[in-house]
């Protein structure tokens, strides 16, 4: 456990040091990469709550990532065109204020997670994987064929949204915002996993019958976990939209769901900092291998295979030993 804490500290400091060094050397691209790591890690932190702690293998988390992205995109596009989103029964106007956008992304993702989770959790095993995948695909095809917000071409945010007191156009300021949210997300998940709720959720993953026998209903635990998980990933989606100043249906695609899952697995399932390590490794691989070969996905695939087949605890599992994280059974 102590070794894992050490690794987590090193990861956090490294994640802070890289953009600061890049800022000192005037390399804004590296800061953007670090921001990408932070945002992907936050998306993974969301999934890790459902997947690692709850044992819910969701292949539809791109749904929440995309909803967060489109919440940012739609609000910003209405603010840019000065057209209200709706005038009746009450007036809703677009906005470029990040806190408002974040709240919107979190609320909408949570509501969608509540609705889809309530339906999906009636099934289990493969059926759960497939029905979450199907819900994700529903949103994907809907955004492709719905012309109002760009359809297949996506939607541009011409000027990055604003946050009071900061210049979000400065890459370092934007990184700081995302980093703070990642830390907040990690803090919340850490608290949850140590709470009575988290323990019961973990127990329901390991032995559903016993949890039932002591009078806890796993369905409700899982639904709450799914909603919180979706909300966190939705927030990451809103940040990702602002990072690229662009949203498109690709955010909803099932490959995105697969990638978010890869962050969690590469780092280590149910490890608190697993998604952070996984996202960092993914982006480093993308940069290093992408420079060596256009076909870097082959190497990514091979690495992923090796991790799944031989190194089951992921990066943190390999470094910290198998007895670390709370999620092992």
């Amino acid at each position: 456990m102590q070794r894992e804490t050490l690794i987590n500290t090193v990861l956090t400091l490294g994640l802070l040091a890289v953009p600061l060094a890049a800022w000192a050397m005037d390399e804004p691209y590296t800061i953007t990469l670090a921001t990408k790591v932070v945002i992907f890690a936050l998306a993974g932190v969301g999934l890790n709550l459902a997947l690692g702690l709850g044992g819910l293998v969701s292949l539809g988390h791109a749904m929440f990532f995309g909803i967060g992205g489109y919440a940012a995109g739609i609000l910003a596009s209405h603010a840019q065109s000065y057209e209200p989103i709706m005038e009746w029964p009450f007036l809703i106007e677009g906005t470029q204020s990040m806190p408002v956008i974040w709240v919107m992304a979190i609320v909408v993702s949570a509501l969608v997670a509540l609705a889809t989770g309530a339906l999906s959790l009636r099934t289990s095993g493969v059926y759960f994987i497939m029905i979450t995948l199907a819900f994700g695909q529903m949103f994907y095809y809907f955004t492709i064929s719905w012309p109002a917000y760009g359809g297949e071409d996506g939607l541009s945010i011409y000027v990055r949204d604003r946050f009071p007191g900061l210049n979000t156009l400065d890459p370092l300021h934007f990184f700081g915002l995302c980093f703070a949210l990642l830390m907040l997300g990690l803090f919340i998940v850490a608290r949850i996993s140590r709470s009575g709720f988290g323990l019961a959720l973990n127990a329901a993953r390991q032995n559903e019958a016993r949890v039932r026998a002591v009078g806890i209903e796993p369905y409700r635990l899982r639904l709450i976990a799914f909603v919180i998980s979706g909300a966190i990933t939705g927030l990451a989606g809103a940040l990702y939209a602002d990072l690229n100043r662009f949203v498109s249906p690709v955010m909803f695609s099932w490959q995105t769901s697969g990638e978010i899952m890869i962050f969690v697995i590469l780092g280590g399932v149910a490890r608190l900092f697993g998604p952070v390590a996984g996202a960092a490794l993914f982006i480093i691989l993308e940069e290093v291998l992408g420079g060596v070969s256009d076909y870097w996905h082959i190497y990514l695939g091979a690495l992923l295979l090796i991790v799944v087949l031989f190194a089951r605890g992921g990066l943190i599992g390999v470094l910290a030993g198998r007895n670390g994280g709370g999620g092992h059974d």
Binding site: L51, V57, L59, G125, V126, I129, G258, M261, I262, I265, V269, Y295, W296, H297, I298, L300, G301, A302, L304, L305, V308, L309, R312
Partner: peptide, 17 residues
């Protein structure tokens, strides 16, 4: 199933590329 999903997802990456 999680391992199966990931390993075969990795195979997709390898085959496609």
């Amino acid at each position: 199933h999680l391992d199966q999903v990931l390993a075969t997802f990795a195979l997709i990456l390898i085959f496609s590329e």
